[in-house]
Design a protein around this nucleic acid. Structure first.
Length: 783
DNA sequence: TCGGAAATGTTTTTT
DNA sequence: ACATTTCCGA
């Protein structure tokens, strides 16, 4: 008898699920039920006697891991699922390293440096070496080092690799190898690993300690890897090591969705898999359950423009559905407004909830115009990605205290907080301590500890000793208290909480709230039973271990809240939405200017386009703007070349003013200023722009003389903190403020609920005016 | 040694 | 446009 969980699967899917032993490769097209197959397969393994403790399942995002865990639990019932090892590469390896780091000479409570920490260390080193940080940009150097680690190349090898050295010589940056070496040593001294180290050191560990390798080879008898097309060489080698005994490796991937080569991922891994093992069983999932025929046809046609793919034909039984809507607007702001308006309209017309919509873009910077327009229309939304909560300054400062409490070697954190809040340990003192630390080859912390010995005097000595005593007092309670208790103590002793509380500025208030939110999240951590099997550890060390690996998308697990979602296409991989707006489809933006120089780069951009199309279940809008602000000046862009690659019969251009493609950009361009006029005017008043910052577009026009504002407007200066209120809340009789017309009183209201019109009298702003509340910004002054 | 003004850089994409 | 860094005067 077949277990009933198989009933919901098609034949191919069943085939994949029921393959238990030996290497398995699943080529899973977009929307083909990949996650379902993976989760069912885990359940199936367990039904066939595989112990949960022996299963390792790796994903790329925390979200994917969480979802997988939940779905397995649902199928299995009970709580066996909590013994599974399911997580991202980084989080699983961090956990393993936490148990084994001492073998590599790291403290087991090593600190994890995020990208900002790492760049900051690099910058310090570059300056110490008297190198020009304009030439040796920390960002550039970081990427270089990251690429090296992802291909398992250590500092020694880097400096002796001919090819790499030639590359650096050609780029006129011969010192990168040296910087890499110093960086690695500094991180080691600090007891810290960066993101790439979590992979690289894991590999080193397995390679250098055969008994450790052996241990994990026998622990993880069954290994599954999601998004295999996005693995890099380091991940690939680790998997190969771990899986080499039992060879029960199941990889799932789709070469058409490989979008992380910038992070060292290589499609080769998926092609290589069949060669690495004998008797690889290959299953192709080609039926798409997600999208309409229209959407899928467009996607298939687009991806066909790439050459060299694993052969597969994605098809669907779903209905044909609506055509894909192609929309052009004049500016990025209009694009934002169009999308917000359309969401409002679709909610009414097709009874969608907010949660059914996603706005997906190429770069995080594009979110602004959508935020604004959604806010103006009173549509709740949430932005995923961008500046993470944990990257905010006040959060990093607070976390630095926690980190230094756990790991005093962490110089990066120490420098952050040694004089925050101000305690009279200035630059001079810090520099002196750095010098001593280098001379004596001891840690920065140790210099502080032995301050008297090293000749600190008077107020400085007092301050240093006070600081050391305080940190030690935190360490003293570590043993007996959980992460939250320690954090509260830190907040109190450092005075940070009180100080922020007393700061009554808007930013101060926000910072105070953020700290409170951080404390809440720590509390939540200590109170939620961890499902990570053996790790029921609520200590501060345990908390810090996971925190750095969380991204903004993992904050607030309000998966069910009814909001429109905004995120980059990268972040949307693996997700699906009833209605998708793929925005900013313009040359130089998507595809990005930086990715059109080689065929490989362009093809990756095209795969990205494929990914965004296939996120949509029912309806898909593609939008682009003729001109948008970039670096503060307006630039014109042509429609994305990808738009020309779509089959005409599934496209509806009627929204785009008829001839959407190639219909603008050349000629006079006078009309483009209608929207940007005032802004531009302001700029010119201050100072003429230095020059055409973005020389990309032929019709880039920053040199144009400032046009006069189209119509005279009131010279009202909005009150500080002006923020428009929701039109729905406005009533006759209220006093309101308009950004240009000043203060006024609402005389009457009219119009449909979603398109209300107010008649307002502005004593100083030209008398009585009719204001369409969806388009104007009014703030309620008095009800 | 500090705070505020001016100059300068930043934009792919993420764990 | 915005954030961060640098510069400058007190």
């Amino acid at each position: 008898m077949k277990p009933n969980y198989l009933d919901e699967l098609n034949e191919r899917q069943q085939e994949a699920v029921m393959h238990i032993n030996g290497p398995l490769m699943i080529i899973a097209g977009a929307g083909s039920g990949k996650t379902k197959v993976l989760t069912t397969r885990i359940a199936h393994l367990m039904r066939h006697g595989v112990d949960a403790f022996n299963i390792l399942s790796l994903t790329f995002t925390n979200k994917a891991a969480r979802e997988m865990k939940e779905r397995v639990e649902k199928i299995l019932g009970g709580n066996e699922a909590r013994n599974l090892y399911i997580g991202t590469f980084h989080s699983v390896f961090a956990r393993l390293l936490r148990a084994e780091a001492h073998r590599l000479g790291y403290p087991n409570d090593f600190t994890i440096y995020d990208t900002d920490d790492a760049k900051s260390v690099l910058k310090t080193i570059i300056n110490e070496q008297n190198l020009d940080d304009k030439h040796y940009k920390p960002n550039f150097v970081y990427n270089r080092i990251s690429a090296a680690k992802n291909s398992l190349m250590g500092p020694e090898e880097y400096q002796h690799d001919n090819f790499v050295q030639q590359e650096d010589m050609r780029a006129n940056r011969p010192m990168i190898g040296k910087i890499y070496d110093m960086y690695a040593k500094r991180c080691f001294k600090n007891g810290a690993m960066d993101f790439d180290d979590l992979l690289y050191k894991m590999y080193i560990l397995l390679k250098q300690f055969p008994e450790t390798l052996h241990k994990y080879q026998h622990k993880f008898k069954y290994i599954m890897i999601d998004e295999y097309q996005d693995t890099n060489p380091a991940q690939y080698e680790i998997i190969k090591l771990l899986g080499s005994v039992h060879e029960n490796i199941c990889v799932v991937g789709d070469d058409a969705q490989s979008i992380y080569s910038f992070r060292g991922a290589t499609i080769e891994n998926i092609l290589q898999f069949e060669k690495d093992y004998d008797d690889v069983h290959v299953v192709k999932l080609e039926q798409n359950y997600r999208s309409t025929k229209s959407i899928l046809n467009v996607a298939n046609e687009v991806i066909a423009h790439n050459k060299g793919q694993i052969e597969k034909a994605l098809w669907t039984n779903n209905m044909e559905g609506e055509k894909i809507k192609l929309v052009r607007t004049m500016t990025d702001n209009e694009e934002g407004k169009y999308v917000a308006d359309t969401i409002a309209e679709q909610k009414l017309r097709n009874h969608y909830d907010n949660r059914d919509f996603a706005i997906l873009y190429r770069t995080n910077a594009q979110s602004r115009s959508f935020e604004e327009s959604l806010r103006r229309k009173g549509i709740p939304y949430r932005i995923y990605g961008g500046i993470s909560f944990y990257q905010r300054k006040e959060i990093k400062d607070f976390l630095a205290y926690l980190r230094i409490t756990i790991n005093t070697r962490d110089e990066e954190s120490l420098k952050r907080i040694i004089n925050y809040p101000v305690r009279g340990i200035g630059k001079t003192t810090i520099e002196k301590a750095v010098v001593i630390s280098n001379e004596q080859n001891i840690t920065f912390w140790e210099v502080l500890e032995r301050g008297r010995e090293f000749g600190f005097k008077g107020g400085t000595l007092e301050a240093v000793e006070g600081f050391v005593t305080m940190i030690k007092s935190f360490q003293a309670i570590l043993e007996k208290h959980n992460a939250y208790d320690v954090a509260v103590q830190v907040g109190k002793s450092t005075n940070i909480v009180k100080e922020l509380f007393n700061d009554k500025t808007t930013e101060g208030l926000a910072r105070y709230e953020n700290i409170q939110e951080l404390l809440n999240s720590i509390k939540e951590f200590t109170e939620t039973p961890t499902e990570d099997g053996e790790l029921l550890d609520k200590s501060l060390g345990s908390y810090l271990q996971q925190i750095t690996l969380l991204t903004d998308a993992d904050q607030g697990n309000d998966e069910n809240s009814d909001v429109v979602k905004l995120m980059t296409i990268h972040a949307a991989k693996g997700l699906e939405f009833p209605v998708v707006f793929s925005v900013g489809l313009e040359e130089n933006l998507f595809p990005s200017t930086l990715s059109i120089n080689t065929r490989e780069e362009l093809e990756e951009e095209r795969r990205l386009f494929y990914v965004v199309i296939t996120r949509a279940k029912a309806r898909l809008w593609l939008t682009y703007a003729s001109s948008r602000y970039r670096f503060g000046s307006l630039v014109n862009n042509e429609p994305s070349r990808f738009l020309e690659e779509m089959p005409e019969q599934f496209i509806d251009r009627s929204y785009a003013g008829g001839n959407a493609i190639r219909g603008f950009g050349g000629g006079g361009g006078g009309g483009l200023w209608n929207n940007g006029g005032n802004n531009m005017f302001d700029r010119m008043q201050k100072k003429a722009p230095a020059g055409p910052a973005a020389g990309s577009s032929a019709s880039s026009s920053s040199a144009r003389p400032a046009p006069k504002p189209a119509a005279p407007v009131g010279n009202h200066v909005p009150t500080p903190g002006f923020a428009p209120d929701d039109p729905a809340t406005m009533e006759a009789g209220m006093e309101v403020e308009h950004q240009k017309f000043g203060f006024g009183t609402i005389l009457s209201m009219e119009g449909a609920p979603n398109n209300r019109i107010a008649t307002v009298v502005f004593p100083k702003g030209g008398g009585e005016k009719k204001i369409m509340l969806n388009y104007a910004r009014l703030m309620i002054v008095k009800k």
